[in-house]
């Protein structure tokens, strides 16, 4: 009963936020598009996505709490490749919680989500299913050369539980080619918020940890395969600690 009430309340406030803040904001941004240069417009859209994302993340508080820990805050922002584990569809929203502004790499189904798909396209996010591997690499390199960060979910799809799928190597090859750092991001708790294939939200805690970056000085000389597995192992160890912490919450 409590969960039903929570989900009804969440649906109500999310709808209100969508109708009175997100939709008008997006319409205003779309209306301004002919007046703003394309690159600047993409930048503005990313900022809007971040604001809307933070709003969406704040709405379920205190029933859903997000704890962000930057384990190595000294890292200078700029061109880098963020790699995140992927348990749930809500993981992408968590990027709004971070201090950096990154271009996300997403799959085609995101475009089917009303407004979100539109915003993702306008923000210059890269659709992995629409691009050939060569085009994806070229566009992603261009993003990094502009000094921007790029966000990958190297599992390729949601795991739906606490297991982590095998990593694809594209993100790591990109970093190696561009000689940029790789920053792992670990997400725990979203496997129930919502569960895969469901929109049903459960109250709980979400942990988001940013780990130490892996620099080209560290990884040069390794194969992309070895690099992806070493980073996956590091993330796996961190996630085991995070999952334990969640059990005690």
């Amino acid at each position: 009963m409590m969960h039903l009430l929570f989900n009804a309340w969440l649906l109500l406030i999310t709808s209100l936020a969508f109708l009175f803040l997100i939709l008008p904001g997006s319409c205003l941004l779309a209306a301004c598009s002919p007046l703003i240069p394309k690159a600047r417009y993409a930048d503005l859209t990313r900022r809007a996505v971040k604001v809307f994302g933070r709003l969406i993340l704040a709405l379920p508080y205190p029933f859903i709490r997000i704890k962000y820990r930057d384990r190595f805050p000294a890292y200078a922002k700029g061109a880098c490749v963020f790699v995140c584990n992927h348990r749930s569809s809500s993981d992408a929203f968590l990027m709004a919680r971070l201090s950096f502004d990154g271009i996300q790499v997403f799959k085609r189904w995101v475009l089917r989500i009303p407004l979100l798909g539109f915003m993702a396209q306008r923000a210059g996010y890269l659709c992995v299913t629409d691009l050939s591997p060569e085009d994806l690499m070229e566009q992603a390199l261009s993003v990094l050369r502009k000094g921007q960060a790029i966000v990958f979910f190297p599992e390729g799809t949601r795991s739906g539980d606490r297991q982590m799928n095998v990593f694809y190597s594209a993100a790591f090859r990109l970093a190696m080619q561009a000689q940029t750092p790789i920053v792992p991001l670990c997400i725990a708790g979203t496997e129930r918020i919502p569960r895969r294939g469901s929109l049903w939200m459960e109250p709980g805690v979400i942990l988001l940890h940013k780990l130490k970056e892996w620099t080209p000085e560290q990884y040069n000389g390794w194969s992309a395969f070895a690099l992806k597995n070493r980073i996956r192992d590091a993330m796996s160890a961190e996630l085991a600690v995070m999952d334990k912490e969640l059990e005690s919450c």
Partner: peptide, 10 residues
């Protein structure tokens, strides 16, 4: 082993 198509090229 978890190789993907790009790893196969390597």
């Amino acid at each position: 082993f978890g190789l993907d198509s790009l790893d196969t090229v390597d």
